[in-house]
Amino acid sequence: MASAAFEEIVEDFEFLEDWEERYRHVIEQGKAMDPLEDALKVPATKVDGCASQVWLHPKIGDGVFHFDGESDAMIVNGLIAVLRMLYNDLPVSEVTAVDAKAELARLGLNDHLSAQRSNGLAAMIARIRETAAAAA
């Protein structure tokens, strides 16, 4: 069910020797994203439940789901980039069918994030799913 972009990061992770390299790769993915416009960093796009500041801005057009986002924490920015690879460009009707926990487990993320980061990741996934469900 994962997108081609997500499959690419899964393949990248297979070649990285240890978690530190994977962690750096996630951070680099976040650094490669365009920043979210300040005008989009509003209470409506802010994700509650994250230890850091997180904003997700969905864009749904022609039945296709897409979102941009940003965080003030480098690793969380990287997690946003990973979620974008997982969800962006899927038909909006398929977004809620993605088993994010299982897909992210393929990267080993579940085993290496703090409880706070895991909670924040879950909050981001919940926001994505709610947005897609409302649009479907």
Rank of each mutant, 00 (worst) to 15 (best):
G30D: 02
I60Q: 05
N88K: 05
C50M: 04
A105L: 06
A133S: 12
E70Q: 15
R24M: 14
H57G: 04
F65H: 00
P58M: 04
D34F: 01
L86F: 09
L109I: 03
G108E: 08
I60L: 03
A122F: 05
D89C: 04
F6Q: 11
K59P: 00
A97C: 03
A134L: 10
V47P: 12
F65N: 00
S93F: 07
A5D: 11
F67G: 05
A100V: 08
K31E: 11
L104C: 07
A134C: 06
E8P: 01
V54I: 12
L107G: 01
N119Q: 15
V82D: 07
V54T: 07
A2Y: 08
G78A: 02
V64N: 00
A105H: 10
P91T: 06
V82H: 09
L90K: 11
G108M: 02
R127H: 15
R127F: 15
D62G: 01
I27K: 07
K59A: 10
S3I: 01
N110F: 00
H57Y: 13
K31N: 11
D68G: 08
A105T: 12
P43Q: 13
I80K: 02
S118W: 09
R84Q: 15
A73H: 01
G78W: 02
A136F: 00
A100E: 09
V26W: 09
G30R: 02
A105G: 03
E94M: 10
A122P: 10
E70P: 06
E94A: 15
I9P: 01
A105F: 00
I27C: 07
D68S: 12
K46E: 15
E130C: 03
L104Q: 08
E11T: 09
V64F: 02
Y23R: 15
A132Y: 03
H66I: 02
G49Q: 11
T131H: 10
T96S: 13
F6E: 03
G78Q: 05
G61I: 07
C50V: 12
D34R: 14
K46S: 15
D34W: 04
A122I: 09
L107E: 01
L56S: 09
W19F: 03
A102F: 00
K46M: 14
P43D: 13
V98Q: 08
P58G: 07
G78N: 02
R117H: 06
A102E: 10
A81C: 06
H66M: 05
D62M: 00
T45I: 10
D18G: 12
L83Y: 08
D68R: 14
Y23D: 10
T131G: 12
R117A: 08
A123K: 13
V64M: 05
R24Q: 14
D62S: 06
G120S: 13
D12Q: 15
L113I: 07
T96P: 03
D38R: 13
P91Y: 05
L79D: 04
G69T: 03
R127L: 14
V54G: 03
G78I: 06
S3F: 08
V95T: 11
